[in-house]
Design a protein around this nucleic acid. Structure first.
Lengths: 230, 230
DNA sequence: CGGGATATTGATTGATTTCAATGTGAGTGG
DNA sequence: CCACTCACATTGAAATCAATCAATATCCCG
């Protein structure tokens, strides 16, 4: 379950990334801290970023690619808690150990900062400390939203919510590019791949979406989806 | 405001605390802050402590009774995110507004501290800032655990997990006292009251539990329940 | 062009919900 | 003290939604 550890990975210098505009104005303290103290590391598709109950020694920020955090039961049932896209920060654990595992969904570049470094900065920088805390609280808000989805929504509502959320996060007008597989989506929505697939087909039949390929989805009628969003 | 002491300390790892004069040894900084700066307020059964999208001006700690936090959809479907028992801290929002609502499950006494007061203290007290943050992160851990339950567990597994969790939190050997109704349990577990009721009956048939009354449950065989816990 | 992984579609089953009664228990007033 | 009531809980029967089992289909990638 732990093919590689963070410590064992080769840490390379930050490569020139397309999103590295020098915008420091209004930048969140934590983002600045990552820019100044983070090292970029590449993770290939499906490799572990960190494992559950591994010591939480780093904080992470997605530069490119996508990451999933999840928990698994003994018998293999998996629940994905969240997907992280470029710009998103994850792994902000309060405890000594990670509460769940994280894996790269596709080949990804992830900025890594030592927890001790950030924490040391936070002691003298209340702005950073507050930001750190509100990032974590933001995650809690999303978690509650996700619980509402898992506990109370129908398959169709779950898929619609997911698509709208992905579209919003990708800041895409119509076309949504999914970095994750149907299995990932199913494990995120608490469904089976068959149900996810059928539901997408059904939404296509209703002309709410269009499926040019399995990883590309065009939102034809946001209104229809919004109606299912709850 | 009468000086009341928390009967049971919250069950959570206490970080290495420094030598502090006015702070009890081993007590978490946030708990101390509540003791020093919190005012006790009574809420009767089913009354709102705060509402979703209300300004988050206070932090809360249960002294006695029980609290539920939840989200509701337009059509009334409700998902309870967590129950808070004596000693537990809640309402630690990072944003300006609350992300969900909180209500007293039964007549409760709740200690309330001004967010601004705690935040001001946190600026000069890194220990407190860290504690504040790790409390929030602890909530995130619980939220992920709850997601696994909602997304991937069967009705029987959900009920078993719930009972074991309640027993652990009440530090009870065999008898669990439930402050909440079947509807609350159902909305917490993502089930209907009928399914909760049926599942409890089924567990009683299997001699895993005993139901002397609807709010009192005797755990006869933790092993059986543990097996369902996942 | 072939082959393995991934995705879709179909048929059927089954767990949970829904609809509908019935039961229970605490509090109230006669 | 007993009926009465109201809220809450249990039980039963039927319906439904999603899971499971099973077969194709499609997409990459060498």
């Amino acid at each position: 379950m732990h093919p590689q550890t963070v410590a064992a990975l080769p840490i390379r210098p930050v490569p020139p990334s397309p999103d590295s505009h020098d915008i420091a104005v209004g930048e969140a303290p934590l983002v600045s801290a990552f820019r100044l103290h983070g090292a970029a590391v590449r993770f290939s598709r499906n490799t572990e970023v960190y494992g559950e109950s591994e010591r939480a020694e780093y904080f992470y920020q997605v530069v490119s690619g996508a990451v999933r955090t999840y928990k698994v039961m003994q018998d293999g049932r998996r629940q994905i808690g969240a997907f992280y896209l470029p710009g998103d920060v994850f792994g902000l654990e309060g405890g000594v150990e990670h509460a769940f595992s994280a894996e790269a969904v596709v080949d990804s570049c992830i900025r890594i900062a030592r927890r001790s470094t950030i924490m040391a900065l936070a002691v003298t920088d209340p702005e950073l400390a507050t930001d750190l805390w509100s990032q974590t609280a933001g995650g809690l808000r999303l978690a509650h939203e996700h619980m509402l989805l898992l506990g109370r929504k129908s398959a169709e509502e779950r898929v619609a919510s997911f698509l709208l959320d992905m579209a919003r996060r990708e800041a895409s007008v119509e076309m949504v590019e999914l970095p994750m597989s149907r299995q990932d989506i199913a494990d995120y929505l608490g469904l089976t791949i068959e149900t996810v697939s059928r539901t997408l087909t059904h939404l296509e039949d209703k002309e709410a979406i269009e499926l040019p390929s399995s990883r590309r989805i065009r939102l034809r009628s946001r209104a229809s989806l919004q109606q299912l969003n709850g």
